[in-house]
Design a binder for these strands. Structure first.
Lengths: 152, 152
DNA sequence: TTGCTCCTCACGTCACGTGAGGTGGC
DNA sequence: TTGCTCCTCACGTCACGTGAGGTGGC
């Protein structure tokens, strides 16, 4: 069962791939959001692609959605539980329990969709404002040029 | 020259209208972002609608665009200069100077439009991800129900 | 040996939250 | 006089930034 790529990255590389600082990686580890896949004998943190993907996910939730790290932790944990369910498939928990967890995930998903939709309309109306303002600016410029063409 | 409404609000009311805390208003004043229109004899801050609108603008730039207060201050200052130009009209600065400032504002506007457009596409693709994930969840549920209907 | 990256404290910063203790207007 | 809101310190918090001083692998 060899993975897609079993390459290991030191903290600097992993941070660059996710577009954050090494300090951020250490802080997220401290908060329990992302742990390195392994450690070198010298004590260096070693990350795999799985962690880099998880990091990008965190950054997305923080930057795009503006969530705080506590809320992001909750979301990641519930997603992790869902992944476990998918992995264990039939052998694991009872079908009733799986049913519950999936419904819970669907609720979380619906809630997120609402939030994103809200953000989208807010951004769209802001963009409309900006284009309207730009049009006014161009009107002012036209006035200026007209006044210059027919001087007092 | 009586204004639209010359009503005055104490800090608590103004904060409620803008959806922030009174601490935030005091902090923004300290940073020079929004100053109260007047003060009562007892030393209470008094705000008018102008300041509430300005506050809402700041919140929009912070929440929707994710800008820090330093950057927001720059944007507000350049917008203030534009307002001055519009007010002074022909009597004020030279036509060349006004031309310059308007071009500057158009550049800022174009830059903001780019940023908003980026955010919009990021949010849209995130929303797409969410709906796709929801579809997978519903697929899992269907599997579960099918397995239950035809038991081992 | 020289660079480069890594390590762990630990203090600094930004944008506020949250009392502490006191004053002012209906 | 009693509430309510306001005031100014001033310390706490979250999410890191930024050295200080030292170790480890090409």
């Amino acid at each position: 069962v060899d993975g897609v790529t079993d390459e290991r990255y030191r903290i600097g590389e992993a941070a660059r791939m996710a577009g954050v600082s090494t300090r951020t990686l250490r802080y997220y580890q401290e908060l329990g959001l992302v742990h390195p896949a392994a450690s070198s004998p010298g004590g260096n943190r070693l990350y795999s692609e799985v962690e880099v993907v998880r990091l990008r996910r965190i950054i997305e939730l923080r930057e795009v959605m503006g969530l705080d790290l506590g809320r992001i932790g909750e979301i990641l944990r519930s997603e992790d539980r869902l992944d476990e369910i998918r992995a264990e498939a039939a052998k694991g928990p009872t079908s009733r329990r799986r049913h519950e967890l999936i419904l819970e995930a669907l609720e979380l998903n619906a809630h997120m969709q609402e939030q994103v939709a809200e953000k989208l309309t807010a951004l769209q109306s802001y963009l409309d404002d900006l284009t309207a303002t730009a049009a006014r600016y161009r009107g002012l410029l036209a006035e200026l040029d007209a006044a210059e063409a027919s001087p007092a």
